[in-house]
């Protein structure tokens, strides 16, 4: 019973991590851009749900998902056009600049919504839970899990079935070859950034279901999200999914075994990841091919 309970909790932590990290598999994993403002796009998505709450009532979460995708996407697009585009291939500059942007966005949130945390009330249909083999699974956690799975399915269909997705993979694998194949690579970069940032917005909405929203809301997730992408193997969707759930479960068990709670669990998880990356610096999954020797 204890083990199953921890597994369920771990899966739900994993789903949260995954949602926060999915957008990064695009912008960081595929394009190699370290966007420190990604967490603030998550925050923007969360405030989107907060703003829509009085308007859409019990349906606020559902209405907020597409709106937050657009909000995050547009913010990402603006960032790409104004700044990131000029600094491709200069990761340190990009890191510092986007860190500055993230502080600006946090201050903007403070100015607009105030410094104290605000609460998005879970809709009535997400309160309560279901009992499964003696373990109680809260509906809001289940919703996050379903949403994460839904996003993964949508992304993998987009990448494998649509010509835009195919083009995106081509640019990420060999930018110059894509260009000389006639692909307008700048346009593809914009689309990639839009989708990656939009997914951050979606994650933000989901995260309002499990906690309050504040201006620094995104910073809580950003490091873990980068870790998921690195451990999963850059740009590998499957790797990110597995990494998120492994980290989530690991987190919940360590937390369970060590009564010291969350902060110690985090230290242990970090240590495991660092040890893991020592052995496999390429992450869990690598692009295997003769062309990449």
């Amino acid at each position: 019973m204890g083990t199953l309970n921890q597994l369920v909790i771990g899966a739900s932590i994993g789903a949260v991590l995954l949602l926060a990290a999915l957008g990064l598999t695009f912008t960081f994993g595929q394009m190699g851009v370290i966007n420190m403002a990604h967490g603030e796009f998550i925050m923007a998505g969360a405030y989107t749900a907060y703003v829509l709450q009085p308007l859409a009532g019990d349906q606020a979460v559902l209405v907020a998902l597409p709106v937050a995708f657009a909000v995050g996407g547009v913010l990402g697009l603006i960032l790409e056009r104004l700044i990131i585009r000029r600094f491709y291939g200069r990761p340190l500059d990009t890191l510092l600049l986007t860190f500055g942007i993230s502080l600006i966005l946090q201050q903007a949130a403070r100015d607009i919504f105030g410094a104290p945390n605000v609460q998005v009330d879970a809709p009535g249909w997400l309160t309560g839970g279901v009992d499964l083999a003696g373990v109680r699974i809260a509906y809001n956690r289940l919703f996050i899990l379903v949403l994460a799975i839904g996003c993964v399915v949508a992304i993998s269909l987009y990448l494998s079935k649509l010509r835009q997705g195919r083009r995106m993979r081509a640019v990420m694998q060999n930018r110059q070859l894509a260009a000389v194949s006639g692909v307008a690579t700048g346009r593809v970069d914009q689309a990639t950034f839009f989708i990656g940032s939009g997914l951050a917005g979606v994650a933000g909405v989901a995260l309002t279901l499990i906690g309050p929203v504040g201006p620094t809301f995104g910073t809580a997730y950003i490091v873990d999200a980068f870790l998921v992408v690195v451990a999963g193997g850059l740009g590998q969707l499957k790797g990110a999914v597995i990494a998120a759930f492994v980290l989530g479960v690991l987190n919940s068990f360590v937390e369970f075994w060590t009564a010291n709670g969350a902060s110690f669990a985090k230290v242990v998880v970090f240590a495991v990841i660092i040890a893991f990356l020592q052995v496999r610096p390429q992450g869990m999954f690598v692009l295997k091919s003769r062309a990449l020797t």
Partner: peptide
């Protein structure tokens, strides 16, 4: 002999074709 290594042969050709 550059290719898109993770794309299939068919996809390699499609990417170029669709951009024309």
């Amino acid at each position: 002999h550059e290719t898109f290594p993770q794309l299939t042969v068919a996809e390699n050709l499609q990417v170029a074709r669709e951009s024309t």
